[in-house]
Design a protein around this nucleic acid. Structure first.
Lengths: 137, 137
DNA sequence: GTCAACTGGTTGGGTTGTGCAACCATGGGA
DNA sequence: TCCCATGGTTGCACAACCCAACCAGTTGAC
């Protein structure tokens, strides 16, 4: 396979995957879209951050994040805490309920992926994950 | 890395990629969205097929494909040919203009990818592409 | 042959995710 | 003190979806 063909394939397959993932996520967990899930995951990992940080990390417009955050807050999954050092800032944190839902969804996603990737050697999985991280870096 | 973590990472990174790809595609070629581009590419590769085939392959609703196709046709990029064997069917084909635009967009995408993936060994590129195909199969 | 069930495609209606631009409030220097 | 930068919200528009209802051919059972 030529390099040009390889990147062509990568682009196409990623697109297919992305669309399927979104649809599948919606079917599995109507209450938590793929985007919301991703944001919650980031909050858990980072231990709380600002909306602006989320926007920067996911290359989203701040208005988009603002609305997502509003939705997550009104669903009781996250809360906004004032930053004593800067009155403009709201630090976002998972609530107890947010943490619960997140871990529950994560578990069922994991099960689905595990089934899907069942035949893959661990080495391939790790390499695949590594490629993706490297690409997005 | 544990397998569970690997699939977690795969899922997250794919999502990030998908969003960026869509936005980048829109910025580079406002006249041809990522979806349209993908559909045109499929038509070129398959040498013409039905709207239903596109829907099945990309896991899209037939109404979505119908509207995409309508857009591409009115832009003069594809044409519908009747199927003599079945009056219900419209076989979709690229027009001359569609082929031109497609190859032009493909070329500039390829350049962007090439730059982005410049540091990657060919072996990694091929393996990455292969993983994606295997995953989506 | 006729009628029901199926298939390919379109259309109406609604939801979601997104960006851009305009705006407000706070913060931090010249 | 002013001016500009930064964090965030809101109005507006748009693209990409899906679902349900529909129309028009096709096919098979009777």
């Amino acid at each position: 396979m030529h390099s040009a063909d390889a990147v062509e394939t990568i682009q196409r397959e990623m697109t297919v995957f992305a669309r399927r993932a979104r649809a599948a996520a919606g079917r599995m967990h109507p209450e938590l879209s793929l985007v919301s899930y991703t944001l919650l995951g980031h909050l858990e990992e980072s231990g709380g951050c600002r909306a602006t940080d989320l926007a920067a990390h996911y290359a989203l417009d701040k208005s988009t994040v603002s609305r997502q955050v509003a939705g997550l807050e009104s669903a009781g999954l996250i809360e906004r805490r004032p930053d004593p050092a800067d009155q403009r800032v709201q630090v976002l944190h998972l609530t107890r309920s947010g943490r619960d839902i997140l871990s529950q969804v994560t578990e069922s996603r994991r099960a689905a992926f595990r089934e899907r990737l069942a035949g893959w050697p661990a080495e391939d999985l790790n390499r695949f994950a590594e490629y993706l991280v490297r690409y997005n870096a």
